[in-house]
Design a protein around this nucleic acid. Structure first.
Length: 260
DNA sequence: CTGGGGAAGGGGCCC
DNA sequence: GGGGCCCCTTCCCCA
């Protein structure tokens, strides 16, 4: 018997991605991206590439790529590693400082007789541009995205340092594991496995202290706390303990820890 | 209102 | 690199 959680409502949507549009595994399969592919489907590697997933955004100092920035370099101090020149900050303004590498390129490509054309060359793909801003725009849209070791999700704002992590995350959007009984979709096989237990009633995790059994190990762990006199989560203010962090949060929000 | 159970999401680790 | 598993956490519902 399906419970109401199957139509889960996210009241506090700020804490989670908007999954309301993900309820159906087909919703996110854009015809543009997945034309002709059977469902469910995992995005193909080329779709998962950092290039494809990097939105064309303008990095600000606050949204500067997290990695692989050298620890001793900050966006403010000037980020210009030749191998990881991944900054996509908007340098199109004339006041933008040029990096050493850019200056080298300028020197290298300037014709000794003063020929101005095609004097800005991309160090990554060797494409030449007649203007500095043209080169910057090219790097911003293409080559920087290729060298940036940051993999951005196409469906949300999340970024990951590895392709594997991104692929794992993508599954939370594509939901490739579908329950044959009720059609509900999940991101991972073991999540589906746990869900199927709600249909079969299987509860392989038994409490050693009472007769209760649980379908989920974490729920058993939470239950075990109820047998303990001293609970795991303690209020800093009144020292009252709780079996779950959520209960402690509720307690705190109810006003116990409000400083008067 | 509080505490507990059920279900699920997601990151990390290991093989 | 991918799959499986563990663990923590969150949300919802109900007694």
């Amino acid at each position: 018997m399906p419970r109401s959680f199957l139509v889960k409502k996210h009241i506090n949507s700020s804490k989670k991605p908007n999954y309301s549009e993900l309820e159906s595994p087909t919703v996110f399969i854009s015809p543009y991206l997945y034309k002709g592919l059977p469902l469910p489907v995992i995005p193909q590697p080329e779709i998962l590439s950092s290039v494809a997933y990097n939105p064309i955004t303008v990095w600000t100092t606050s949204s500067f790529p997290l990695s692989p920035l050298p620890s001793d370099l900050s966006p403010i101090s000037g980020y210009h590693s030749s191998l990881s020149d991944t900054s996509s900050k908007d340098h199109s303004g004339s006041e933008s400082p040029r990096s050493d590498e850019d200056d080298r390129m300028l020197t290298k490509l300037t014709d000794p007789h003063g020929v101005e054309a095609e004097q800005f060359q991309c160090s990554l793909c060797n494409k030449s541009y007649s203007t500095y801003s043209g080169l910057l725009k090219h790097k911003q849209l293409h080559c920087d995205a290729q060298t940036r070791k940051s993999f951005s999700c196409k469906y949300c704002e999340k970024e990951y340092v590895s392709l594997g992590a991104l692929k794992m995350h993508i599954r939370t959007h594509t939901l490739p594991c579908v329950c044959k009984i009720c059609g509900k979709a999940f991101s991972r096989p073991w999540l589906l496995q746990g869900h199927i237990r709600t249909h079969t009633g299987e509860k392989p995790f038994s409490c050693p202290h009472c007769s209760r059994a649980f379908a989920d190990r974490s729920n058993l762990r939470a239950h075990l706390q109820t047998h303990s006199d001293v609970k795991k989560y303690q209020c800093k203010n009144c020292s009252k303990t709780f079996s779950r962090m959520s209960l402690l949060h509720k307690h705190e929000e109810s006003g116990c820890c409000v400083v008067h």
